[in-house]
Design a protein around this nucleic acid. Structure first.
Lengths: 221, 221
DNA sequence: CAGCGGTTGTCAGCGAATTGTCAGCAGGAC
DNA sequence: GTCCTGCTGACAATTCGCTGACAACCGCTG
C-alpha cells in the first residue's frame, strides 16, 4: 500500500512516516502543494494524507484540483485549524476524512485504515481472465476454480497486472507499486518474482515483451 | 461488534453502555452531535444508537448528514419526545428503528439485534457456516448442534469473522473491532486469540492468509 | 479479605515461509 | 560471433505467524 504524505513540517512528517512504515505502508512525501498535486495526478497511491497549510498551493486547492481532474484517490485531511467551517469545506471538496492537529498516531492510523477500507469496498473484487479468477476480498487467486497458493508479494504482482490487463507494464512501474519509491530494488527482483509466479501459474499468463515489460493479455487462449 | 452510542445524558449513557458491554458489544460513546457525525463518518461501526436531543447538532441532522454522505451504518434512534411526527421524520431521514424513552434495556437490545440482523441480510439471528452455527441472541456457538464453550473475547472474534465470512480481515481491523479505540493492543493478541479458538474449533474454520489476515470461508468443505 | 478458577494480554522463542541477491546461463537481436 | 536482456537455481537474511509460559486481572466463594 503506497501512501502519499503531503506535509511541510519536517518533524510531523518524520513522525507520521515512521508510524506508517511501522504499520506496513510504503510512504512517499511531498513538501509543497504544487509538487503534491503533480504527484497525485501522475502516480497511483492507495491514499493521500494532506496537510492544509502548504507552500505554493493550499491543500484544499490541491484536493479540488485532483477531483476536478478526475482523481479519485482517498484523501485524509490534516489541519491545525480545527473549525467547523474548514471541516465542511474539506468534506465538500471531496476529502474522505478529516483529522485535526494535534492527533494521536493511532488515531491517524485508524482513520487511514477506515478510509482505505471504505474505498476498497466500492470496487468490484472479482477479475476473471481466462481460467484465472482474482478475488481481492478473499485475497485469493484460483485457476479453474481451484485456489492457487501465492505469497503476498506474488499476489500483489498478479493483482496489479490483472488490474491493468491488456497493457504492458514495465519493471520500473512494478517496482514502484510493490516497493517504496526510495528502496533500491533491482529490476531483477521483479524477474525473479515473475519467474516464481510462472512456476505456479504456468508460462502463458504473464508474457514478456522483451525490452518493454510484462503483460497479462485481456483475452486468454 | 463495535457500537457507537450518541447520548448526552451521562446516566442513560452509562446504563446503556453497561448493558451493551454485558451483551458482548464493544461500545464507544459521543456526547454531542458534531463529534458523533464525525465519528460515524470516519469509523466503522456495526450500528449506531442515536439520541435526538443533542448539543451542537441535532440527532436528526446528524443522521441526514450521514446518509447524504453515503454512510449506511444501521441507526437506532432514541428520543424522549415520542410523537408521531418525529417518528416519521426519523424513518424518513434513514433510521432503521425507533425507540421512545423511557425504554427497558431488554427492548433496546432486542431492537439493536434486529437492526443488526436486518442489516446483515439474515432473517434470523443465526449464521450457519459448515458445521458451525452462531446464535448471537444466545451468544452461543455450536458445532453439529453441540454447544462449544468460548470465552467472551473468543466469541467476539468468531462472531466478527462469521459476520464477514468470505472476506479477509486483517489484524488491524480485528483490533479495531474487538477492543475500544483507545487501547493499543499488539497484533500478537489476535494471533493468540486465533490460536485459542482453533484449539477449540479445529484448525479448519479460521484460515490464515499469510501477509494479509484471517478469513472464514463462506462455503466450508 | 484471601484464595481460586477462569480469562486475557504480553513476551520470548521457534520453525517455516518469504523474498531479495547473486552468479551463471540461454537465447534473441544485430 | 557478440552483446544484451531476461531466466533460473542456490543461498541467506528477514519476516511472519504460532505456541507455551507467565502474570495481571476479575468475579466468586468461603
Amino acid at each position: 500500500m503506497r501512501i502519499l504524505l503531503v506535509e511541510d513540517d519536517d518533524r510531523i512528517a518524520r513522525d507520521v512516516m515512521t508510524a506508517l512504515e511501522v504499520a506496513g505502508f510504503v510512504v512517499e512525501r511531498e513538501r509543497d502543494g504544487e509538487a503534491a498535486w503533480f504527484r497525485g495526478e501522475t502516480e497511483d497511491y492507495a491514499a493521500t494524507i494532506l496537510d492544509l497549510g502548504l507552500p505554493t498551493m493550499d491543500g484544499l486547492s490541491v484536493l479540488k484540483r485532483w477531483r476536478a481532474g478526475g482523481c479519485r484517490v482517498p484523501v485524509l485531511i490534516l489541519t491545525a485549524r480545527d473549525t467547523w467551517m474548514e471541516r465542511v469545506d474539506g468534506i465538500d471538496a471531496g476529502a474522505d476524512d478529516y483529522l485535526p492537529k494535534p492527533f494521536r498516531m493511532e488515531e491517524l492510523l485508524a482513520r487511514l485504515r477506515a478510509v482505505l477500507r471504505r474505498h476498497a469496498g466500492q470496487g468490484s473484487s472479482l477479475i476473471t481472465i481466462g481460467a484465472f479468477r482474482l478475488d481481492t476480498r478473499q485475497m485469493r487467486l484460483s485457476r479453474d476454480g481451484i485456489p492457487v497458493a501465492l505469497t503476498p508479494q506474488e499476489f500483489r504482482l498478479v493483482s496489479y497486472l490483472m488490474h491493468h490487463a491488456g497493457r504492458v507494464v514495465d519493471s520500473g512501474e512494478l517496482i514502484e507499486q510493490l516497493y517504496s519509491r526510495d528502496s533500491d530494488r533491482d529490476a531483477n527482483a521483479i524477474e525473479v518474482l515473475v519467474g516464481r509466479v510462472r512456476k505456479k501459474l504456468g508460462q502463458e499468463l504473464i508474457q514478456t515483451r522483451r525490452g518493454f515489460g510484462y503483460i497479462i493479455e485481456q483475452d486468454q487462449p
